[in-house]
Design a binder for these strands. Sequence first.
DNA 1: GCGATCAGGT
DNA 2: CACACCTGATCGC
Length: 615
Amino acid sequence: MSSFAGRMKEYPTISLDRFDRENLHAQAYFLSHCHKDHMKGLKGPLLKRKLQFSRTVRLYCSFVTKELLLNNPKYAFWEENIVPLELESPTQISLVDEASGEKQEIVVTLLPAGHCPGSVMFLFEGGHGNVLYTGDFRLAVGDVSRMEHLHSGSRVKNIQSVYLDSTFYDPRFYQIPSREVCLRGISELTGNWISQSPHHVVWLNCKAAYGYEYLFTNLGEEFNTQIHVNSLVMFKKMPEILSYITTDRRTQIHACRHPKDEEFFLGNRLPCGCTAADGTPLRIISIKPSTMWFGERSKKTNVLIKTGNSSYRACFSFHSSFSEIKDFLSYLQPVNIYPSVVPIGRTLQEVTQMLRMMCRKQPDEAAIVYKPLGVLKRSRMQPPTNDSGSDEDLFEGLDLVPVRKKAYLNQEAERENPPETTAPPVDESVPLVVSDPQPVGQNYFDCTESNGEEDDDDEEEEEGKGDAAKGTKAPPKWEDFFSAEMLSDSQNSQSQSCCSVRTASPSRATGSQTPELFSDEEEHPDNEETFSLALSASLSDRSSQNIEDTLILHPETQNHPVQSEPEELPASQASSDFDVPGTPESKAPRPDELSQLYRKLASGEEVAIRERRFT
DNA sequence: GCGATCAGGT
DNA sequence: CACACCTGATCGC
């Protein structure tokens, strides 16, 4: 769960995904997606009051997120202050200090995050550098290399800091089967079951959260049916999702919920109470999407596990795996990385240390490391700074020191996996000093920011002992996962001149579909009235044959090798300089445009990932 | 009665 | 298999 306190060092007057405490004073708010752990304080009375007195405070998010948010009346007071932004459209925003009238301009670009419908990452470009706040994300290996707005021509933009969804940034979660593979597993199991008879139904035991929608749309499409859910209202403006869900219980695929649904299921009942008309009992299996991960060398990559007579667990992840995150970071090579999550069993120090290895190597640090006696002192460019207060208290409780790469020379080289994605050079061109905030798409920045205060280095031995003492099974040593090769790789890639892009399966930018989002929106199915499936009683009973106990599906067997197909990329890509409309308040789209937008966003259409980009 | 927080559940 | 929630108990206002 996110423990991000809401603010970024570079732009401390804005708050993201946190709306309580210090964040009450922010000049602008950003919501990456509509999960509750990213909405803390968002309906608070203090914030509500603030809005009544402020003329300038806005909440920026995607169109889909706005729609999902306003679906809950508790957030309705935001309506006038929400500015939905289109994906991949750099937008200039004024940050206004209402007391002094001071203004600061910043450009924000929403990038698809693949976490749930409407989920985005925020790229900020302004006087204090380019920073990327990922929110929660699931991107496949290679996806980042196709994101136009992270590039400037053929170069990767110079990213000062990444505020990272580090949920699975731990070698234990080295690999998580791809979305496509997981989907195929679920799809095959579903198909095998429901084709046996009309009485065979599948219950998708999904938690109440957005993110499963793409499962519904894909299954709906594949089996030419609709999935039964409790409510359609949240998707009323998202036809691409809406067309695959229904409140009509006469369907063989259900994702409905009930507070006692597990109990129901044990009694062979669906959460909606649906039964067969003629008294023939339904034959129900449950499929529970949940995260499954595998270590680096594990050959076991089953995406389905049988957990009971008629229940299954299916692999499904909202978050990128360790190797996906590594790919993402080693491509971007930010100067700093700040984790927003500490994986359980880990400590912040460990994660921070692991992340250091993914940071860009700082030239002056190389000097420090390799030329110990203070040779060369490079002159530093100080970023323009108006931080008046101390930054330290921004990150309450979290010891978030700028993470920078150090030399780790003691790794055994033993890595067979080649670097996942090769990064083009980072654009370190000298920033123009910004006198005029208009020009956007430009990197102001500086790669040698505050150095500094790094006093805490070696605490990990203690931590390790602590873990052992607690009896927690010690997670694998992370050092093993960063071999010398990898370290040198991230350096090499800087000197590489062209971008080799892999064609990994494009990730769905925005999935779609889920039952109830907000708890306060009830409307439970009425279980008194049992609906009947009007079906013939031809029940082929091969029901209770035992299926093997564990694994059902090996993705490898159907996985198309994700080799790097060359992909027709001219080595010299025309550098399109991005035009940035100055759209401080982003005009409201017309209704027709809007519904198109919703469709795109909601369907998980690959909005971001257009092949055309490098042509 | 509402909200925040925690424990415990899936 | 560790997600993103629920519910229920307790406490303070």
